[in-house]
Design a protein around this nucleic acid. Sequence first.
DNA 1: AAGTGGTCTAGACCACTAT
DNA 2: TAGTGGTCTAGACCACTTT
Lengths: 270, 270
Amino acid sequence: MTRKPRSRVLDASPSIDRDSFEPAYIQLVNILRQGIAAGLLRPGEQLPSEAQLCRRFGVSPMTVRRAINILADQDVVNPQQGRGTYVKPLHLGAATFNLTGFPGLSASTSQTVVRLLEVRVNKASELVARKLAVDAGSRVIEMRRLLIEAERPVFVHRGYLVYDPGRPIVEAEMEVTTLQALFSGSGSNLIKRGELSIEPTILPAEDARLLLATPGAPGFCLEHLFFDFQECPLSWGWFVGAADRVRLTTQVGLPATPAATEERRHDALA
Amino acid sequence: MTRKPRSRVLDASPSIDRDSFEPAYIQLVNILRQGIAAGLLRPGEQLPSEAQLCRRFGVSPMTVRRAINILADQDVVNPQQGRGTYVKPLHLGAATFNLTGFPGLSASTSQTVVRLLEVRVNKASELVARKLAVDAGSRVIEMRRLLIEAERPVFVHRGYLVYDPGRPIVEAEMEVTTLQALFSGSGSNLIKRGELSIEPTILPAEDARLLLATPGAPGFCLEHLFFDFQECPLSWGWFVGAADRVRLTTQVGLPATPAATEERRHDALA
DNA sequence: AAGTGGTCTAGACCACTAT
DNA sequence: TAGTGGTCTAGACCACTTT
């Protein structure tokens, strides 16, 4: 008969180039992805065993495992102890939308300008006091900003910070170019973690005016609450943007371009 | 002087329990996370070198590297060749919202009921034809469904599928309990990948009626386009839900409960 | 030159699943 | 019992950065 055993499935695939700048495990990840994307390995089917992959590609078990672990982390493949490793069918819940889809929120985009519209120290309303876990009537810093990207307003931001008498407000400090610096606070307080939440809204009249959008149009509201290392809330606020300026998109399954998803990011340090 | 060298920073941390069911590399991930969450290791600071970690915890270099790789993947830490590994300051762009926040879209929730409102074969409008890459006027399957979760309607779904004469429409087949089965299509066509996109909208009157929501209220629209292994579009459609039923939330930085993020998922196979 | 992270080996041992 | 994935070792060699 002509049925191929699964150990022969990848025989037509390229081998690993030991002279390449690309590490062997990355090459193997790409070879396997290609095999799946090309339909050689179909959802639900079993991959060649790790021992077979070692022999076929001439690498050590650790290298094969590493490649398979990466595919497992990406939800492409599903290893089961004692049974084998299987190609995962595409799963809707696997989709993740990341905030980089929001213009201006990523530190790398230096195109973004932050214009300070208003800043003052005020007594906390009941809502603000609850969010920041301070007594109602405590003093908090209130501010309103406009994020401008390529000369066009993208977000209105409202924020409330706990007022720290030890750190006077310097207006210039508020006109930061990156939102990153904004939250890391050029001051002493470091942020440990944050909670974010997105919901759709109808643009309020004033925000619509600032965003040069029509009032009543649909928009996103991105709420944020940041905590310091003592788990105390430090800042609360939200961004409002028009729906047609911001869109969250993502892919599930194997992207059209397999590409190198595994680049390590070398960011600047704080 | 009393300044601690960074190699001593983790001296107070627990050691690795070789009798634990938890693998050494997971224990090490958690120890390091704890150290960061507790403020022992602050954003921007350098971790003990890998060699130091090997000695401190009595594990081999590969085990240390594995733990650090996991933290790097989680954007907690930033290894730089030749310099050292540093604690990453929290970065807004790191936030990812996943679709599991949407009720009913994950296969695991068996609480979800899908009610078929309408299904028919129709000629494709210009828009539908463009999305599905077929000739305008070709026949496509049109359907409208209602997703019900715990007796309450959550989403209206409109979908268009390329009409395959070889596979007649079985109405019962449409009344699937999980949306997963819906897209994997109990038929012959397998889906390779999909493109998803979320945008806010204003609920149309008819959808609002089905969702028992007030017309004109804000809502989410989740658009999807699925492709087969030949890169041909198979299905296009969108879900509409009211804003107050669906909310996308996420965390950036270190979650309050360090927990075991590293569980391997053992899903049922197709 | 010394120290750092990055890759890789060639096994070992274990836990689990199938037959 | 044989085959599978899962963990781990104790090094090696390399590329890079800092001093």
